[in-house]
Design a protein around this nucleic acid. Structure first.
Lengths: 144, 144
DNA sequence: TTCCGTGCAAACAATTTGCAGAATT
DNA sequence: AATTCTGCAAATTGTTTGCACGGAA
């Protein structure tokens, strides 16, 4: 089920943060680290339920909030009702295909990031979300 | 109460979009056009209530959704539970002071906007939110 | 043994919906 | 006169909370 390297990393990270190692937490965090789909709470819940059928939605919420508080994951909102979660905490943006709704990571070059600094503000963080149509959707849309 | 130029513009815009001219709508849209505070639904509701005490929250929601659907206003989410609304639909970003929570408009130079185009995607829109501390808050925070 | 996390159910908050009456065209 | 909007209340959805029990340290 688990890749050992990955699980060792997670144990290490939890210990550093004085977070108790529970099956629920490890699975949620591990799942988030393994996916690049930027899942919503609902998707996370459904996936973890396959492994831990007794898990409750409240636990998923509590765990996600804890992981956000400890800076281990990030919440993103790409023009949607719901938030999505991302275990990739490197400075990066996101691009959403407005047709198929997938959200991909977007690495920005350092110059661009630097040029985001603004007069009058001490900028600590940013969210950059691009919206458009991905290649396969464009193809599909023009063919029809 | 109303600036005539402004109200004339709004009447014109509503007519172009076949939107019925109602007191509620005109006031909500006019209020959004007059403010640069990026208010939440609740703030909008409270402010419009001063002018139309009988207005209901449901009407505020319905009106905002209509205006969004017609592309007259935009919803933004700057890492908050609630959405904020902006009647400025020019391509621009936002910067939020994480201390006083104010949200300001951020005009980006064209080069920067152009450099946001991405391989594999036909980019149509973007959200850029910067987070940091504004000058007056920085001063306040270092003085204490 | 202490403390924290989990799971349940209830509570809460934000938003949407259905519908009758009112206002706009 | 036809259509659309408003305002109320109820419904829905997403999220949080309180608490007793269970598991991790």
């Amino acid at each position: 089920m688990f890749n050992n390297k990955n699980i060792d990393d997670i144990i290490q990270i939890f210990k550093e943060n004085n977070l108790k190692l529970t099956l629920q937490r490890v699975n949620i965090y591990s799942y988030l680290r393994s996916t690049c789909e930027h899942p919503t709470v609902d998707t996370i819940y459904k996936n973890i339920k396959k492994i831990i059928p007794t898990i409750s939605l409240a636990t998923v919420y509590k765990t996600l909030n804890t992981l956000v508080d400890y800076g281990l994951i990030k919440m993103i909102n790409v023009c949607e009702e719901n938030f999505r979660y991302d275990a990739n905490i490197d400075l990066h943006g996101h691009i959403k295909c407005t047709n198929c709704n997938k959200v991909e990571d977007l690495y920005l070059d350092t110059n661009l990031i630097n040029s985001l600094s603004i007069e009058n503000y001490d900028v600590q963080n940013f969210d950059l979300f691009l919206y458009g149509t991905c290649k396969s959707c464009s193809r599909e849309l023009t063919t029809v």
